[in-house]
Design a protein around this nucleic acid. Structure first.
Length: 333
DNA sequence: CGACACTA
DNA sequence: TAGTGTCGG
């Protein structure tokens, strides 16, 4: 879900120039996988599946997006979540409840012939199970994409990688990475930059958010931005009822953080939450190396194991490893 | 989501 | 060739 800071951060978002996107991108793996699982579905919400009923939506998303990135000079590193902090237990429980309810509503909508509703509930029922996670890791490995296993929140390590100069930016839809101190966040990181179907056709272009611009523009320290987030609600605490980003910002500016917490969030202790954003557990060790995509094993994995059509996969692999753009790609490996 | 076919 | 729709697994 992420923290609802969009209303105050929106003025500091910039459309990304393609040169801003080249280089090492720390991809928030869970964020990307949820996106693929949610959206890559049939109109009634049924995900892509192989003959045995295993979900393959994420494999399609990973394959086509990654091969696009490599051609465009983007070097992705995928950062996977480790063990969630105890502070996150409430959020995890809530998400499970929402997911399970969506599952039921999806079935119901399908029975009633409510296609649009079915799609919406199907999206909300998306779950990253072991099968999805391990097949995603398998495919990334075959594509030669490095993977980092965060000890805790992937967003924390992804942000730390940018802070320490290992990566140029974090690729995520969520603003939480700014709280973790990521100097540069890129949202909607896709190369096709096209539009989206289902409902309206909207142009979705990559956008960058520079943490320093946000802090300078709002005249906040990062600690204060974290306090704004705590009032709104984060993965580690429920927010104050009726307090959105703009109200929270006003309260912080007025120096009323403690008062709002005492009045509206009497059960939360802000200190461990602040501390988690400021000093999260991170790996700090990022041995990243890109390898050439393993053409034969990718075919065997996607087409042999998961029923993808060779006619769709082969041309893409030939495009990235064949003569045409080889020079560009070879310079990284 | 992203590829591809089709249309004007 | 830009816009629109459909398919993929």
């Amino acid at each position: 879900m992420g923290v609802a800071l969009r209303d105050i951060i929106a003025p500091y978002k910039h459309p990304a120039e393609s040169q801003d996107l080249t280089g090492v991108a720390s991809v928030d793996a869970f964020n990307a996988l949820y996106q693929f699982l949610s959206i890559i579905r049939q109109p009634d919400g049924t995900p892509l599946m192989d003959k045995e009923g295993r979900i393959t939506s994420h494999l399609s998303g990973i394959f086509f997006r990654t091969t696009n990135f490599l051609q465009q000079g983007i070097q992705p590193v995928w950062i996977f979540d480790g063990k969630p902090p105890e502070l996150k237990a409430r959020t995890i429980g809530e998400r499970r409840a929402v997911r399970e309810e969506a599952q039921e509503k999806w079935d119901q909508a399908k029975r009633e012939g409510d296609t649009a509703g079915a799609f919406r509930y199907a999206m909300a029922s998306s779950k990253l199970d072991d099968e999805v996670l391990s097949s995603a890791r398998n495919l990334l490995d075959l594509l030669g994409i490095p993977v980092i296993n965060a000890p805790s929140e992937g967003e924390a390590d992804a942000s730390n990688m940018v802070r320490t100069g290992v990566a140029r930016y974090v690729a995520s839809q969520d603003y939480d990475t700014l709280l973790f101190g990521a100097p540069l966040l890129v949202r909607n990181l896709t190369v096709s930059g096209k539009r989206r179907s289902h409902g309206r056709m909207v142009n979705v272009l990559p956008e960058t958010v520079v943490l320093d611009d946000v802090l300078t523009g709002l005249n906040l320290t990062r600690e204060e931005l974290i306090d704004v987030a705590i009032l709104v609600g984060t993965d580690f605490n429920e927010g104050a009822v009726g307090v959105g980003a703009k109200t929270a910002l006003k309260k912080i500016k007025a120096g009323e953080f403690k008062e709002v917490v005492a009045l509206k969030l009497p059960d939360i202790d802000p200190e461990p939450i602040r501390n988690f954003f400021l000093n999260p557990p991170v790996s700090g060790n990022y041995p990243i190396e890109w390898k050439k995509p393993d053409h034969d094993r990718i075919i065997s994995f996607l087409c042999g194991d998961y029923g993808f059509s060779e006619d769709r996969i082969n041309p893409v692999l030939e495009k990235i490893s064949g003569r045409g753009k080889q020079r560009t790609l070879d310079s990284w490996f």
